[in-house]
Nucleic acid binder design. Structure first.
Lengths: 339, 339
DNA sequence: GGGCTGCTTGCACAAATGTGCAAGGACTGA
DNA sequence: TCAGTCCTTGCACATTTGTGCAAGCAGCCC
């Protein structure tokens, strides 16, 4: 008879079995879907489990099945509106298919990325979703070699092993140019940040190309690390000169908010009369009355749905290395002149 | 000789031992701090591990120690600026002390809270941090009975078992009143939401009391579920009447942003000349040029530090049921008239 | 009642790891 | 060179769970 420690420590199946007067196998089978247990013993077991407060140990269970039920989300800047919404959507859907998310924050030192991916392997995560940033290819290969399922989001360099889910940045950026061009803008600035994320670079490039095809030159400004501050600074730099732009494509909504604030507060400009602005992401603040930003909606729901689809499939490894791209639809608000 | 599967599946210590020509115990000891291994075997083991891509299985390790290294963060509305910053800070510090965060999202259905806490127990989480919301007391007791370490953040009802970390909402709300009162405001509105979170209620109450002591009546408006939309709606309701308030204490910065936008966009009012506003949380947007909101700073860093301190202590259970309260300092910006 | 069928149940083993214990080996001092 | 000491190492058992296999048992049909 094993010793019962009522208050502390976790209850094991052995203790439940002893209280219920059955074998430990019976307890195990009671909590295993599709196992063969009679209704009477099932009842005894459930009652004993309730009394003792028993909860199946998923760690031990994962030793046997290869499925730990853990999915790692790794990313930097997770307090950003876009990222936090993405994490919100993914965690919610993962829970719906009985997985649980381990969030690994790679902000700060660069070594932390390596340590983070090691955690992924240590906990035998079912899959690793790389939300952003630029983890070295070697580390991704480490995961792949260990049989890990790797899902990359918004890395436009399409690697072979992992699954790629991306947004059609190029198409959206082209559309952004045409929106501004059609509105009559001819001196268009591109506002970006020093982050150098693949998606940001893709948006810059595609916009520049589309402008070139229309015979326009654009200047790309990268005034700070990321976000609102960089946008504000870019606005201060670009609008203080004598040759002011009449429109800006900001590769991120946060940049756009900063840019607009600089234009209005520092220079008293009117948007969209004197300055048109287009953003990207469609964060919550883009819809606020102070901004009413015309932008492109990140297909967050589709991305989250696709991830769960990949993980919930009967054979999650069947289409390894596949690539999916979702469209970012324009959201018309008030920062681009109509017609 | 166990079969080597090079590409797929995870590598076990047994395989490393065979390649290195030592016993499995030696492998185990190589990866255990403080265990006795000679330098030569350690080298052989590390080399073999590197070759095969071995990573210690934390799930199996956790079967032996009671320490799984997993900390559950459970909360709703995790895409909110305040919550995402809190999660950012906590995950970062947890990683620094070699723990990893499991994020459980309790937005949506109410049953999900129960399922979430079960996950906590299933994975033998080292501790459960309840970020917000109002999980039933019975579920918290379930965790405590299983020997779980429970840490509640910003629940002003101080329960016995769990650790409580809170913000001194009452003191800040009193200070908010005096800020507005000293600025000459006499018709002060309190803007809140229908969320009914303990912290929000505490702020409402304390402000009301302080106003009452100064001989002023305040009306509390709860115009929507939460956030910006509720603040905007409250602004529309309160400012359309003939008896406009000349100041508002918004129990959340998001509410304050919505309220200010309604005042300016819908009614063309000037802040702070015609209307003073004080918020709470000091989210990033409060510092944006469009708002420059005077508010109270959530002690996010202190809270995160305290959590890690509790978990990293030699005996994490030593001061069970302790309560700590941090002060929320005022951040003066431009939405309250000076002097 | 006997034989057959099918469900239930316990035993024993599997999964990957940490660790006490005893044995072995190397080194030192006399 | 021998005894003693200390470090290293392998064996075996521990952690918690799932499951194949065989035995047991009930029920049913002839």
């Amino acid at each position: 008879m094993s010793e019962l420690k009522p208050g502390r420590s976790f209850v094991s199946a052995q203790q439940v079995a002893e209280l219920a007067g059955v074998s430990r196998s019976a307890v195990s089978r009671t909590f295993t879907d599709g196992a063969s247990v009679s209704e009477t013993t099932r009842k005894k077991v459930l009652e004993a489990a309730e009394t003792l407060g028993y909860h199946v140990n998923h760690l031990a269970r994962s030793l046997i099945h290869e499925d730990s039920g853990i999915v790692c989300l790794i990313g930097a800047d997770i307090n950003t509106p876009y990222h936090s919404r993405l994490i919100d959507a993914i965690t919610r859907r993962l829970q719906a298919i009985n997985r649980v998310a381990m969030v690994i924050n790679t902000s700060g030192d660069t070594d932390s990325v390596e340590a983070a991916l090691r955690q992924t392997l240590n906990y035998r995560a079912n899959a690793t979703v790389v939300l952003s940033g630029t983890p070295p290819t070697s580390l991704i290969n480490t995961c792949l070699n260990s049989g890990q399922h790797v899902i990359l989001i918004n890395r436009d360099d399409h690697l072979d092993g992992p699954e790629n889910i991306s947004v059609d940045n190029a198409a959206a950026a082209r559309e952004a140019f045409h929106m501004l061009h059609r509105a009559g803008s001819r001196r268009i600035a591109v506002v970006s940040s020093q982050a150098g994320t693949p998606s940001l670079v893709a948006r810059e490039r595609a916009f520049e190309t589309a402008a070139g095809e229309a015979g326009l030159d654009v200047t790309i400004t990268r005034a700070g690390p990321t976000g609102y501050g960089a946008g504000f600074e870019a606005g201060r730099l670009l609008l203080s000169g004598s040759h002011r732009p009449d429109a800006a494509f900001c590769v991120t909504d946060l940049l756009a908010c900063g840019f607009m604030d600089a234009a209005r507060v520092e220079f008293g400009m009117n948007v969209p009369e004197e300055l048109c602005v287009v953003g990207f992401d469609d964060i919550e603040q883009a819809g606020w009355a102070s901004y009413q930003l015309t932008t492109f909606r990140q297909p967050i729901v589709q991305v989250a749905d696709h991830i769960t689809m990949l993980l919930d499939g009967e054979d999650p490894l069947r289409q390894r290395g596949g690539s999916v791209s979702f469209h970012a639809d324009p959201v018309w608000r008030r920062t681009v002149r109509p017609k």
